[in-house]
Amino acid sequence: MKAFQAVKIISGTLIVLASLNAYAQSNDAAAAPDATAAPSAKAVRAANRALQRKVLKALARAKGLTAGNITVRARGGAVTLEGRVSDQGQSDIAGKTAQGVPGVTSVKNALEIREQ
């Protein structure tokens, strides 16, 4: 009878310890952000603005280009150039400069040639 009582006590103790151990473990899947999860809308807007600033900075530094009347829109790596330039050469320079900026995947050159 004492052996049976000892087995019950040991079994009960092991069950309690096992349940406490399982409860104390952290859930790594919930604690770590999912790498495949889509970024938040705020992060996407910030990335688009940062890319827009990079392209504008590159356009301002480009030789042979007056970038004062050029507007840049960026969305997910796709860049759109809008505004007016004085000739086709400046439009080409703007497109090539924008394409050379890291992070740009495509460039839509919607620049208008301003007649003088």
Rank of each mutant, 00 (worst) to 15 (best):
F4H: 01
Q5V: 12
V7H: 10
I9S: 05
I9D: 07
I10K: 10
S11Q: 03
S11I: 06
S11P: 02
T13E: 01
I15D: 00
I15H: 00
V16A: 15
L20E: 00
N21H: 07
Y23A: 15
A24W: 11
A24N: 12
Q25H: 08
S26I: 13
N27R: 08
N27C: 03
A29Q: 13
A30K: 13
A32Y: 11
P33F: 01
D34I: 02
A35E: 14
T36L: 11
A41G: 13
V44K: 15
V44H: 04
R45G: 03
A46S: 13
A46Y: 04
A47H: 04
A50Y: 01
L56W: 02
L56C: 00
K57N: 12
A62V: 06
K63H: 10
G64C: 03
G68F: 07
N69T: 06
I70P: 04
T71Q: 15
G77T: 02
L81P: 07
G83N: 02
R84M: 10
D87V: 04
Q88D: 14
G89R: 14
Q90H: 00
Q90T: 00
S91G: 15
D92L: 09
I93H: 01
T97V: 13
G100K: 01
G100P: 05
G103E: 10
T105E: 13
K108H: 09
K108F: 06
N109A: 01
L111W: 09
I113K: 10
E115Y: 09
